[in-house]
């Protein structure tokens, strides 16, 4: 046998692999985020482009930097830093100062992901962790925002929509006449980049469901829970007449959270049953935040809180092995001869 000419790969079974990889999944997420990204750029022009560019580039650089410091292989090709960067940008409002974005990316990719051990070991959704960090740190630099944002205005021109009240604020104040369901659904300015079009988010979510990158359990249970609570909090008939339940689904970050944040592989439960529990709990928390607290970032904090409970949910929803529970039908199925041992 001409051994020197043979270069046979020796590896253990199985010898087939599905074409699916982490990078291909992340690319699907980027594709799914394209509609809402484009609409936010259409709405906010250069402000959106700037925000997205700063966020994605700094997320990628922080990943490179942290992995370099920790002497690990670069993993930019898995595209997860780009996804985190884009998601973070979509959570921010136009006019957010560039250094806030960079700080957010630092917390998202550097602290929440790489310091925890890299992709797969992070307990909290990186983009939301970054958002929460800059939100909580905001009081430290209150007042500086305008001075830092002001120079941008010279280049990008002024944009009235930036300063207008967000739909969620209007909802909180009961100003339903200033809200338009069709506007919320199709495209309307106000709030963060990712809150400009419910329809774009639904299209992206549908794409991820079609590509089997996410399951229906989390988005469905989250949205259904919010619908139910929004209906029955107060007078159900009045709520329905005013369209309150739908506003709660379409306004704010609920859809972005339901399709793109809560469904994050790493930080959501492992089984479908666990995902239902997770989604319902987030839905309840979101409504508590929205009803009891100010109309800010209820979705982000709800998801982050439930991220912490994922290991517990996994353990509590552990399913029985094959054959561990006798099939219910066994009693009804044609009885086989009674097994008497030792005859």
């Amino acid at each position: 046998m001409p051994e020197q000419e043979m270069q046979l790969t020796i590896s253990t079974s199985p010898h087939l692999r599905s074409p699916e990889t982490v990078s291909s999944a992340m690319r699907d997420v980027l594709i799914a985020l394209l509609p809402v990204t484009l609409i936010s750029i259409y709405m906010y022009r250069w402000y959106a482009v700037f925000l997205i560019a700063v966020s994605m580039v700094s997320a990628a650089l922080f990943e490179l930097l942290f992995r370099k410091i920790m002497k690990k292989q670069a993993t930019l090709h898995d595209c997860s830093a780009l996804v985190t960067g884009l998601l973070l940008a979509l959570c921010l409002r136009p006019g957010t100062p560039w250094w806030t974005v960079v700080l957010g990316a630092f917390f998202a990719v550097g602290i929440a992901k790489e310091l925890m051990g890299g992709l797969g070991w992070n307990r909290f959704n990186p983009a939301l962790f970054g958002l929460a960090a800059v939100t909580l740190l905001a009081p430290l630099y209150v007042g500086t925002t305008s001075t830092f944002a002001a120079p941008l205005r010279q280049f990008f021109g002024s944009l009235d929509v930036i300063t207008q009240a967000t739909p969620l604020a209007l909802l909180k104040q009961g100003l339903y006449d200033q809200l338009s369901l069709s506007g919320l659904l199709i495209a309307s300015p106000g709030g963060a980049l990712g809150e400009t079009s419910a329809l774009a988010l639904i299209i992206g979510g549908a794409y991820l469901l079609y590509k089997k990158q996410i399951r229906w359990q989390i988005p469905a249970s989250m949205i259904a829970t919010v619908l139910v609570i929004a209906t029955f909090w107060g007078n159900p008939l009045e709520n329905i007449a005013a369209g309150v339940p739908l506003y709660h689904v379409l306004a704010g970050g609920l859809l972005l959270g339901a399709f793109f944040m809560a469904t994050d592989w790493v930080t959501s439960p492992i089984t479908a049953k666990g995902e239902l529990v997770f989604g319902i709990a987030i839905g309840i928390l979101v409504m508590l935040f929205r009803k009891a607290l100010g109309p800010t970032e209820g979705v982000a904090f709800s998801i982050l809180i439930m991220n912490a409970f994922v290991p517990l949910i996994d353990r509590l929803t552990k399913r029985p092995k094959f054959g561990e529970i006798p099939a219910k039908k066994a009693a009804v199925a044609p009885a086989r001869p009674a097994v008497s041992k030792g005859n």
Partner: peptide, 12 residues
């Protein structure tokens, strides 16, 4: 099939 692997991403 490729043989290099990364950490679990908990996709389920």
């Amino acid at each position: 099939a490729k043989t290099a692997h990364t950490d679990c991403v908990r996709c389920g």
